[in-house]
Design a protein around this nucleic acid. Structure first.
Lengths: 206, 206, 206, 206
DNA sequence: TATGAATGAGAATTCATTCAT
DNA sequence: TATGAATGAATTCTCATTCAT
């Protein structure tokens, strides 16, 4: 009779795998790719070194995988927020809220994406470009829609979206460096929203 | 006859020192601090390992020094550009031109500052924060002046400046990834200028 | 089945640790601290470089530890020998026997203490002084007792003990350089004993 | 016309050579062979690295040469002192005075011989043995003479001399570690003399 | 599955020695 | 002769990865 992992076994396995991945996100985002050691990760996860290699092929693969997954998570959250609204102000606000929320409550996610893997590993470069591209597109779509509806003045929306992506990241990273990030969050969202609407030359219609 | 530590010798030494530093900038900006090895640097410079340690105390010291020097160079260039003009549009345009110019003709400078040393070494973290702070201040000063003269609407200029810093960096890094960056430069400057003026709610006065 | 960190495993690890320490003692005592490389030690022990650093933090720490441990071992052996006897001749004889015994059957111990770590590492200098001090005290105590009981003539027992320490070491090191050290051992003990008793002006009482 | 170094030139050369050797003795005796670098030596001597290799073939050769020369100097001084006297007490006293004198006024000499080159370089081992041997013989000769004249009791004078060599070295090294070595010197000589005469069972004749 | 001991390639750094001037 | 810039072999130590249990 072939070995068949029962549900319970699989659950346990998944739980351990998940624990290690979460530990890895914490460690990678805290120390960056190179400074983070496998030992750091496994001791954070409470397992042995060997266990790491049972679940993951190697450090680099895990990191890239983590990066992709984390990017996916963040992008989806922001996109869903923007797509659930109709007007540009609402879309931008919802998107910013989602982004800031994640930044404040899951800072490791943002750290990993924006800081942890910058000069890290060659294989990541392309993923990074991809991430920036998708993030830009998320901000561009509402702009394109608003432009089509003449709610904003004619402009290179692609460029505006790039600028948004950079601007939001910078402000949010600065926010994370404050001790009372949570309290500031609301104000930051407001200010970024106004910034974005002004920058997009939002006219509110006609 | 004793060795002549004359001007010629001194000049040669300085030249070699400079050449090695430039090689180091190239390697650091291309690979990031950790991935760049001393061997990479010396082979880029065409010298032996020992020569590196004849000129510099160690990898970290050199990197931090390079980072500071490079930051100083970039910041000064932008600041001088903005300060040499009187009105907000002129200031922003001059600053952006200076920035984009350096990015296009000395890409390693920008790469080093924005990419090369991100999750690198503890001693650098503080330098990085300092650099971001100073860069933000450069963009903030024109805004404060314009605000005082009521050329822009009331706003948190600090936040606007942060957003500018992030926005410009992102767009410029994207520009550098293009094959024909040089040709695009003019358009990018124009678009960033318009973006900035809109975002600052520049009214042109009264 | 999970890895059993059982007694057997633990014992094996301890055994290997001990084996490596013995290898290190051999290498250190043969070459001295500086000339002994980690590679020497691990190849003597038959393991890989990494294994060394799995068991010990670094070369210097191990060496100092080894020195202390070895000193402790030798000093204790000599001291126990002297303390188990009552009269000066018996005490000196027992101490010398213990010392010569160790020198002949564990020459590395003596080599390490007397030769291996002489101009070695700053941290050791103090340990060395400490070792000489304790060794001197071991020889001084019987002298003080004998002096109190007027079995020896009045003298600076501290100085006499220092001279003993130096004299015994010199003769024993010379003994170790002989091919047939073992056979000579008995005669050396006798001669050193006579030497010591004469030098201490031992009168045998009254 | 062949190059002929004039007397003045040769003197200068010799002066520089001597300066470097003295510097080397200081550095070697202070740091030990391995820790002493060529750079240490030349900067102590006030010349450039290259100059070192003009006068000496390499570090090891210089060290061995220095060791021999220093040994020769010390041995000769002691031997002349002992040979200039007739009776054992006078010989021992003169020898000890010479030894302690050098130790106190040229501590580097003694440090180099007794400490600086212990686990140093293989080529030295034989020189070291030779030095100990010659030192022992210096102490042995007076003993043999005294024995022949029945001023001391029958004994293995070779062994006694070895013990003297070790005893004197130990006490003198301890003396050098004191801050006020100079003041103590007289007492140390006295005590060592008494020690030696007792140990040799000196009867003063018939 | 899980463990952690063991491995060894590779990195930073030192320093004796060489050599063009 | 004298200089000091340049060299590169050698050393210590780290850490991703493997493997016997």
């Amino acid at each position: 009779m072939p070995y068949q992992s029962s549900d319970k076994t699989r659950q346990k396995k998944d739980a351990k795998r998940t624990a290690m991945m979460q530990a890895a996100v914490r460690v990678f985002s805290a120390k960056g790719y190179h400074a983070a050691t496998i030992r750091d990760i496994v001791s954070e996860a409470g397992v042995a070194v060997g266990t790491f290699y049972f679940y993951f092929p190697d450090k680099e693969t895990l990191f890239v995988h983590l990066y992709e997954e984390t990017a996916q998570f963040l992008l989806q959250a922001i996109q869903q927020a923007t797509q659930s609204r109709a007007t540009l102000p609402q879309q931008m606000k919802a998107g910013l809220q989602a982004y800031v929320n994640i930044a404040v409550y899951e800072p490791a996610v943002v750290q990993l994406l924006l800081v942890g893997g910058v000069g890290a590993v060659p294989a990541l470069t392309v993923k990074r470009v991809e991430f920036r591209e998708r993030l830009t597109l998320i901000w561009q779509r509402p702009l394109d829609k608003a432009l089509a509806e003449t709610y904003i003045l004619p402009q290179n929306t692609r460029r505006t979206a790039e600028a948004f992506a950079g601007a939001f990241d910078e402000v949010i990273l600065n926010l994370l460096n404050l001790p009372e990030a949570e309290q500031e969050a609301g104000a930051v969202i407001q200010e970024l929203l106004q910034f974005a609407l002004r920058a997009a030359a939002y006219t509110g219609g006609n």
